[in-house]
Design a protein around this nucleic acid. Structure first.
Length: 274
DNA sequence: CACGAGACCTGTTCGC
DNA sequence: TGCGAACAGGTCTCGT
């Protein structure tokens, strides 16, 4: 689910707080509740609870699809995977179905991790690099240039779509934004990365940045009940639009399976070049 | 190195 | 209406 724009939206919301003044920055964590221990990747439940108690939330950031909570002495990393969400609630609220972890904060607030499918994971560590170390570059980083992207693509004899989903190649893209970016760049999802020329690499990077920026400006995509307020789902051009006319040329959008993921593209705008 | 299948989970939608 | 199949924003591991 949550891809870079959704995680960025959540990080921003946690930093800025709600209209009700429910800001969590600067607050001390009184106590952690683990409703499903499998959520915790490291350390053990006992050490997690004793170590996190008393630490303050200094800041909230993002790297790839990971949320980073800077605490007094540790970093808490959260990966929402397919169905995770973070909510700020009050302490009195009884735990909703699928709550997996709750952090009681000073001032009666509570930061809750809800995750129906139980794929999400949490780490508490003083060395976030051990978790983030293998991530590829941030696509929106100004230091990530088109010529460099072209060099990376040229070194890989692999279909472009699964390559863009590979977090070690580039961080933050998921199934929605990959399909949208390929359509924006007019590149077929099965195109081999090392067959793209510099001009196509430039278009690919521009497409990635364009759809990510649009996703962020629309507060992400809210499919089903998750990620309240996001609007990008109403602006998909190909994702989950099988059979609907391409917004650029009217050709019906096609769906194929690539690397076991549903893949949506326009056969006219994105012709397969061998 | 590249790729496909299977696993990890639960909920919703689709097709008969 | 009922019920099983298919599908879902992600990632890891294993076998070829």
């Amino acid at each position: 689910m949550p891809e870079l724009p959704e995680v960025e939206t959540i990080a921003k919301a946690l930093r800025e707080g709600g209209r009700d003044g429910s800001a969590i920055l600067g607050r001390r964590i009184h106590r952690a509740h683990l409703l499903w221990e499998g959520t915790l990747e490291t350390p053990s439940p006992g050490e997690f609870k004793s170590r996190i108690a008393g630490q303050k939330i200094r800041n909230v950031g993002r790297r790839g699809k990971y949320l980073l909570l800077d605490l007094s002495t540790d970093t808490m990393l959260i990966h929402l995977r397919m169905s995770g969400d973070l909510l700020v609630e009050t302490k009195h609220h009884s735990p909703a179905p699928h709550h997996r972890m709750m952090l009681d904060l000073e001032g009666g607030l509570r930061l809750s991790f809800n995750d129906p499918r139980k794929f999400g994971r949490v780490w508490l560590t003083q060395e976030p690099r051990t978790v983030l170390g293998k991530l590829g570059p941030e696509p929106l980083d100004a230091n990530f240039t088109a010529p460099y992207f072209y060099e990376l693509l040229r070194a890989r004899h692999r279909q472009i779509k699964p390559l863009l989903l590979d977090q070690a190649f580039i961080a933050g893209l998921g199934n929605i934004y990959t399909d949208e970016a390929l359509h924006s760049a007019r590149i077929h999802p099965l195109t081999l990365a090392d067959s793209l020329d510099l001009t196509q690499a430039e278009k690919m990077l521009a497409g990635i940045r364009q759809v990510l920026r649009e996703g962020i400006s629309r507060n992400g995509a809210s499919i089903d009940w998750v990620y309240r307020g996001g609007d990008f789902q109403n602006h998909f051009r190909v994702y989950q639009r099988t059979g609907e006319p391409c917004p650029d040329c009217e050709t019906p959008i096609e769906r194929i399976v690539v690397g076991q993921r549903g893949t949506h593209f326009c056969p006219t705008c994105q012709p397969f070049m061998k």
